[in-house]
Structures are given as C-alpha cells and as structure tokens.
C-alpha cells in the first residue's frame, strides 16, 4: 500500500475529495486555515469549487445551499468560527441536510488562543444552536483517522441526512503521519429529496419551519428516532488494554495519544490500567462504559477542558463507580509524566 507522510489537515481534504466532496466553503482561522488552503488547492483540480466566504455564518449557509443541491460539501473552522456557525448547524439539522463540518478546536473563551483545547465538546455535542438536535461527531487522533473519519462523516451524514462533524485539535491537524488512502471510492447516488433544478422539484422542500406545534412535534419525534438509530448503529471507540483493567483512562483526540503512552508506562510498572478512547463523541459509547463500570474500580477522564465529556461518562456510569477528572485548559497539553503522576495520585487516593 502506498503511504504518504502528510498533515492531518491535508488528510482531511484528500479524504473528503475521495469521499466525493466537491464543494468547500470556508473562512480563515488558525489552526484550521490549512484545511481551507488545501481545499483551495485540490478542489479546482478535480472540478470542484472552493469558496472563501465572508464569514463563518455565510460559509455554513453556503453549505446549506450546496447540500440542498444534493452534493457532498463541507466547511472547516475553529472554535470561535464554530460558535458563529451554530445557527446554521441548527438549520441544517432541522432541514435534515447532510453536511460535514470540521472543527479544529482551539483555546477559549473569546479569542482565547490557537493552542489545542477540547472545550467545544459542549457546543458541538450538546447542541450549541437551538432546538432538539444532534450532530454526529467523530474525533480522530491521528492523520490516518483525519482521512478515514472524514470519509466516514460523509457516509454517515448522507445515511442519516444529518450534519456530521469532525472534532480535532491543532496538534492532530498540524501533525504529519503516514496515511494510506483507500482504493475504493464510494458510489454516490442521487438523493430523492434534493433539488436538482431539472423539473420534479415541485414536491421537494428544504425547510425547518413548521408552524403547527403538533406537526413540529412530529418532526422532532422523527429526528429523535433518527438519533436513536444513530446511537444504536454508529458508536465507535477504541479499547486499549481494557481486558483486565482495574482503572480506565478515558480521553479522545490528542489526549488519547498521551494516554496511550501513559498506559504503556503504567502497565510496565505493574498497574492494571487501560484506556477507552471514544471515536464517536455522538453517539457516545454509553453502553460500553456501563458494562465496564460493572468490573472496574475507577474511571479517570482526561480532557483539554474544564470537564465537558466527563459529564457523559458520569451519566453512563450513573454513580456505580467513581469517575475522576483531570483536565488542562488554555491550550496546555499535559505530558505523559504529568498524566502518570496525576493518575497515580487518583489511583492511590
């Protein structure tokens, strides 16, 4: 297989194009600009369109329009830009438009900084926009997954007619690693609900307004049923040394890479510890955690935030076992040693 050493941000764009994406609407923001730049470079080569919009608000709405036309399309931004997109994401969810949104998370609140944080968890997973909606969210932890999960995001978005997000951070985006690009390309079908402007559109409607409360309730119920199906079918995670683990570290994205090193060292020191890495943040591996709670002593959640995903772990564990949290904020990524020291403290407490 042919491998290529490339940045995660570039792997996203190549993965997207291989997945059939031909439209990208973006607005520059560090550390996501490279995605726009790569899209601007590659899309015209494959007959696609890259457009730098006037704002993140415009770009998500351009995406709304493009997705209405039945094509695979995407946008990418970083935390402050994602905040601006939230209205549009809610509209995409309401109108059931398959769009892919990449969030290369950075430090906040406000302008914050450009270093990696994971403090967009709540705004993406809990719905930063209004309404009872969910965004499928995948969290890569290496360049290969930046490609693979982007391709998967397009599949899932189409399969469920739902927005799908990639939640990564500056490190995963900037990091170069070998990537193997898949040979098989997805076959794209016409979407019976999409507008093609070739006649036969008169019974189609892309719309999120339903004035009649019972009707809007029905629409919401239908959405919830869809989310239930997504919860049933699309949970993805990685177990690392969980079989005999007494203690489980839980972390995603760049954190999981540090946790992996920490687990290796702690195992070498004789501690029965493992790592659970949620790959899909929505749907969250709730049941898996419930099962693990039956046999482990403690969960330790590590995030680059004030503790956002930990709420979902606590909901899953539901008091059965202690759930501890260790987090860094402001773009500080803990070292392996730091994790080991703090995990030891928690284990021994």
């Amino acid at each position: 297989m042919a491998k290529q050493l490339i940045k995660g941000n570039e792997a996203i764009v190549k993965g997207a194009i291989l997945a059939g994406c031909r439209f990208f609407f973006g607005y520059p923001i560090t550390p996501a600009s490279e995605i726009a730049e790569a899209a601007a470079y590659y899309l015209p080569r494959v007959g696609g369109t890259f457009l730098q919009a006037e704002s993140e608000i415009a770009s998500i709405n351009m995406l709304y329009g493009a997705a209405s036309g039945g094509v695979r399309a995407m946008t990418a931004s970083s935390s402050p830009g994602i905040s601006l997109k939230q209205e549009g994401i809610s509209y995409c969810a309401g109108s059931e438009l398959p769009v892919v949104i990449v969030d290369i998370m950075r430090g906040g609140p406000g302008l914050g900084n450009i270093a990696p944080e994971q403090s967009d968890y709540n705004q993406m997973i809990k719905g930063g926009g209004h309404g009872n909606y969910k965004v499928i969210a995948l969290a890569p932890n290496c360049a290969q997954e930046m490609c693979d999960l982007t391709m998967l995001a397009f599949e899932l978005a189409d399969k469920y007619r739902n927005p799908a997000a990639i939640m990564a951070d500056g490190f995963i985006g900037q990091m170069m690693e070998p990537v193997e690009f898949p040979e098989a390309l997805p076959r794209l079908e016409k979407k019976e609900w999409a507008i093609y402007a070739e006649g036969q559109d008169d019974d189609k409607l892309i719309c999120s307004i339903l004035l009649d409360p019972p009707e809007l309730e029905q629409h919401n119920i239908k959405l919830q049923e869809k989310y239930a199906k997504i919860r049933q079918n699309e949970v993805r995670y990685e177990d690392y040394y969980l079989d005999d683990a007494d203690f489980i570290l839980i972390g995603y994205g760049v954190v999981s890479r540090v946790l992996q090193s920490a687990v290796d060292e702690l195992r070498a020191a004789g501690i029965k510890i493992g790592m659970l890495r949620p790959v899909s943040l929505f749907p969250f591996p709730t049941e898996h955690i419930q099962h693990l709670a039956e046999r482990v002593k403690k969960f330790i959640v590590i995030e680059l935030s004030n503790g956002q995903m930990v709420d979902d772990v606590r909901l899953a564990v539901n008091g059965a076992k202690p759930v501890e949290f260790y987090g860094r904020m402001g773009g500080v990524v803990p070292t392996t040693d730091e994790i080991i020291a703090n995990v030891r403290k928690i284990i021994e407490a």
């Binding site: 457009l51 770009s59 329009g65 493009a66 209405s68 036309g69 093609y196 008169d202 719309c207």
Partner: peptide, 23 residues
Amino acid sequence: KVGNIQCAHGRAPAVATGIKRVL
C-alpha cells in the same frame, strides 16, 4: 411550484451562492 429552500434570517444570498455553484 419550483425547488424551494427556506433558510435562516438574512442568509438567502449565501444559501443562493451555495446552490447556484452546485446547479
């Protein structure tokens, strides 16, 4: 009796841009 897209307040030009580029 056409292809209809309802969208967010003020965003019609952006949505129009998106779909016009596709179609």
